[in-house]
């Protein structure tokens, strides 16, 4: 190098007292900011640990802890659902913020897409791609939670429209419109014995279609191997016409029965802690 290199200066001049204080303050502020930010993010644990409001997850959802780990919160499952059964959770749902759930009483999954579109749409496998047909779904398990409310168990029929005017739920009534789900309220019923839960069960409907030689989408794989729900005679019924809904191993927990149950609150609900597999093993 040339000779006119300036005399070596101290690389880092000693900071003035004022500057050093400012640097230290800035450091402490930054640590506080980091602490605050991470704390805010960790607040998401509170609802998780408190198991705040467990909710039904869409078809194919992994076990809850794996589901929360893998869901990227994009809502593609929401967008493809023909009956708009899937909603996204909000702030108070912890790490569930932005994750999909189904409020079956408002709008159940009725499998009107046939092909599990939500599963196909999921980019991360949070809704496992290992299932392809409605009967493979394990959302939960239906349960007659309020037998005293059930019309069939009292031997009562049902006449009129399901639920009140505020109810916006949709359902695909195959025999009326194969392609478009209709508002449940658009249908009028006159049933000597209420069997709304059974006649709206997507699994039962599929079994009937298959029995008639017309499997959904012409695909025999769509045929469920097991029944999901039926009305059975009661052992000790005051009324001989009374029947009780019995949930079978084919139930996938879609919640269609809960949605259309005309009593308030519904006599039949989906228990999200159980499914056909866990029930059998226990």
């Amino acid at each position: 190098m040339s000779d006119d290199t300036p005399a070596p200066k101290p690389k880092k001049p000693v900071l003035g007292e004022k500057k050093r204080l400012e640097a230290r303050r800035k450091f402490l502020r930054s640590v506080a900011l980091a602490g605050g930010g991470v704390t805010a993010a960790l607040l998401g644990f509170v609802p998780v640990l408190a198991a705040w409001e467990p909710r039904l997850r869409p078809p194919g959802a992994l076990a809850e802890n794996k589901f929360l780990a893998s869901c990227i919160k994009c809502g593609q499952c929401v967008q493809v659902c023909p009956v708009e059964a899937i909603k996204l959770a909000d702030l108070l749902d912890g790490f569930g913020l932005g994750t999909p759930y189904i409020a079956a009483r408002d709008q159940a999954c009725d499998f009107s897409c046939d092909g599990l579109q939500c599963v196909l749409a999921c980019p991360t496998g949070a809704l496992t791609h290992e299932i392809a047909y409605p009967h493979q779904v394990r959302i939960g398990f239906a349960e007659v939670a309020r037998p005293d409310k059930c019309l069939a168990m009292q031997g009562k029929g049902f006449r009129g429209r399901i639920r009140d005017e505020a109810f916006r739920g949709k359902f695909r009534y195959n025999e009326i419109d194969r392609w478009n789900p209709l508002p449940v309220r658009s249908q009028e019923f006159d049933l000597p014995l209420c069997d709304l839960c059974v006649r709206h069960c997507p699994i039962e409907i599929r079994m009937a279609q298959c029995a008639a030689g017309k499997p959904p989408a012409g695909d025999k794989n769509q045929c469920p191997p097991k029944r999901a729900i039926g009305l059975e005679p009661m052992a000790s019924a005051p009324d001989p016409t009374a029947r009780q809904p019995v949930v079978f191993d084919g139930c996938v927990g879609c919640g269609a029965c809960e949605m259309v149950c005309p009593t308030e609150p519904p006599a039949i609900v989906v228990d999200m802690t159980k499914n056909a597999d866990t029930r059998r093993s226990s």
Binding site: A40, A41, G44, K66, L68, C71, G75, L88, L91, F95
Partner: peptide, 23 residues
Amino acid sequence: GYTVFEFISPTGILSRALIYGPT
């Protein structure tokens, strides 16, 4: 095992709010 950051990400929150409605 949780996507902790997504809980406070304004990008995700705003994008979803625009598409799926306010939260």
